[in-house]
Amino acid sequence: TTVKLGDIKVTFDNPEKAKKYAQKLAKIYQLTVHVHGDTIHVK
């Protein structure tokens, strides 16, 4: 599962960890989390 934020891409083996990371980023940057299959976009 890949978390994308602009040019930053972080890949996790564990989808749950990816989701938590995405939510953490979203909170920090006051953005929202969008899940598209294996990719989680923070924008």
Rank of each mutant, 00 (worst) to 15 (best):
T1N: 04
T1W: 14
T1E: 03
T2K: 05
T2A: 04
T2W: 05
V3A: 03
V3M: 01
V3N: 02
K4H: 11
K4D: 05
K4N: 06
K4M: 14
K4F: 13
K4L: 13
L5A: 03
L5K: 02
L5W: 14
G6C: 15
D7T: 14
D7N: 15
D7Y: 15
I8W: 15
K9I: 14
K9W: 14
K9F: 12
V10A: 03
V10W: 15
V10G: 01
V10C: 15
F12S: 00
F12K: 00
F12D: 00
D13L: 11
N14C: 12
N14S: 12
P15H: 11
P15I: 11
P15E: 09
E16S: 07
E16T: 09
K17T: 12
A18L: 04
K19M: 15
K19L: 15
K19C: 15
K20C: 13
K20P: 00
Y21P: 01
A22V: 06
Q23D: 13
Q23K: 09
K24P: 00
K24L: 15
K24H: 13
L25N: 00
L25Q: 01
A26D: 02
A26R: 05
A26H: 02
A26Q: 03
K27M: 10
I28H: 08
I28W: 11
Y29P: 04
Y29R: 03
Q30G: 15
Q30N: 14
Q30F: 10
L31T: 05
L31S: 04
L31V: 06
T32A: 09
T32M: 08
T32N: 06
T32V: 13
V33H: 00
V33T: 04
V33Y: 05
V33C: 10
V33P: 00
H34Y: 12
V35T: 07
V35L: 09
V35W: 10
H36Y: 12
H36G: 06
H36A: 12
H36L: 13
G37E: 06
G37D: 05
D38I: 08
D38K: 10
D38G: 08
D38W: 08
D38S: 12
H41Q: 08
H41F: 13
V42L: 15
V42P: 00
K43Q: 12
